[in-house]
C-alpha cells in the first residue's frame, strides 16, 4: 500500500474537554486508487489529510507514506518526506500570485534545494498539457479561471512524482460542471501516475468518480459508502 493509517488517534483541546477528531482510524490506499472521504463540516476530513501528509503527527497509531513510517517524523524530516512523496491539492488551488503556471510546478522541484533543470521544465510542460493547460504555461493565477487554477494545483501536486496525492475539497470554489471536470481529472491522473489518492469532499456526487467512497463519522471511517466501481 502507498498510504496506510493504522489505529490513528488525534484530539484537540476544546475548552476544558478534549475533542477526539480521529479515533483509532484505519485507512489503506493502494497506488493508482482514489479514495473519497466524505463527511459533514468539522468531522475531521482535513485533519485526516494533515496526518496523512505529515503536517500533524498523530498522538498514537501508525502512518506509512510511500513505504516510510512517517508517524514519528518532525520538522525537516517531515518536510523532506512531503517534498519527495506527498502531493497536496488545496482548496481554491492556493497558487502563489507572483508565479506563472509553469513556475508553480518548477517551485515544487526547486524547494528540494537544487537548480531547476531542463528535465524539470519538460515535466512541467508535460503535466500542464496533461491537465489541459497547454499554451497557458506563462499565465499567472489572476489570468486563469477557477477551474484552470485548480488544474494547475493538480499538476503542481504531481510534479515531484509523489507516492500519495492528498486533495482537500477541490471543488468547493467551483461550479458543478467545473467541479465535476476537476474530479474526473483527479481520478484519471491518479490511475495514470499510479499514486495513492485521497480526496476529501462533502459533495457525494463529485465523490462518485472515486474507486471507494468512505465517510468520516465520530473519528472513524465507516464501511464504504460505495466500494470499487
Amino acid at each position: 500500500m502507498s498510504l496506510e493509517l493504522e489505529s490513528v488517534t488525534l484530539g484537540y483541546p476544546d475548552g476544558e474537554r478534549r475533542r477526539i477528531i480521529l479515533d483509532g482510524m484505519d485507512l489503506a490506499v493502494a497506488g493508482g486508487e482514489l479514495v473519497a472521504v466524505t463527511g459533514p463540516s468539522g468531522s475531521g476530513k482535513s485533519t485526516l489529510l494533515a496526518v496523512a501528509g505529515t503536517l500533524t503527527p498523530p498522538e498514537s497509531g501508525r502512518v506509512v507514506v510511500g513505504g516510510v513510517d512517517a508517524g514519528s517524523l518532525r520538522g525537516g524530516a517531515a518536510a523532506r518526506l512531503r517534498r519527495e512523496r506527498v502531493g497536496f491539492v488545496f482548496q481554491q488551488a492556493n497558487l502563489l500570485g507572483s508565479l506563472t503556471a509553469r513556475d508553480q510546478l518548477l517551485l515544487a522541484a526547486h524547494i528540494g534545494g537544487r537548480r531547476v533543470r531542463a528535465a524539470d521544465r519538460a515535466r512541467a510542460e508535460e503535466l500542464l498539457g496533461r491537465v489541459g493547460l497547454a499554451g497557458k504555461e506563462g499565465r499567472r493565477p489572476h489570468q486563469l479561471s477557477g477551474g484552470e487554477r485548480q488544474r494547475v494545483g493538480v499538476a503542481r501536486a504531481l510534479m515531484s512524482r509523489p507516492a500519495v496525492l492528498l486533495v482537500d475539497e477541490p471543488t468547493s470554489a467551483l461550479d458543478r460542471e467545473r467541479g465535476a471536470d476537476v474530479m474526473a481529472l483527479l481520478a484519471e491522473v491518479v490511475r495514470e501516475q499510479g499514486v495513492a489518492g485521497v480526496v476529501v469532499t462533502h459533495d457525494l456526487e463529485n465523490a462518485s468518480v472515486a474507486d471507494r467512497v468512505v465517510a468520516l463519522r465520530d473519528g472513524r471511517l465507516t464501511s464504504p459508502v460505495r466500494s470499487a466501481r
Binding site: 501528509g53 503536517l55 525537516g76 518536510a79 523532506r80 518526506l81 512531503r82 517534498r83 519527495e84 506527498v86 497536496f88 488545496f90 492556493n94 502563489l96 500570485g97 517551485l107 515544487a108 524547494i111 528540494g112 534545494g113 503542481r156 515531484s160
Partner: peptide, 16 residues
Amino acid sequence: AHDLAVVRAMGASRGY
C-alpha cells in the same frame, strides 16, 4: 503568510 504556509506544506524547509 498563507503563501508561505502553502510552500511549507509542499515540503519547503524553514531555511529555504
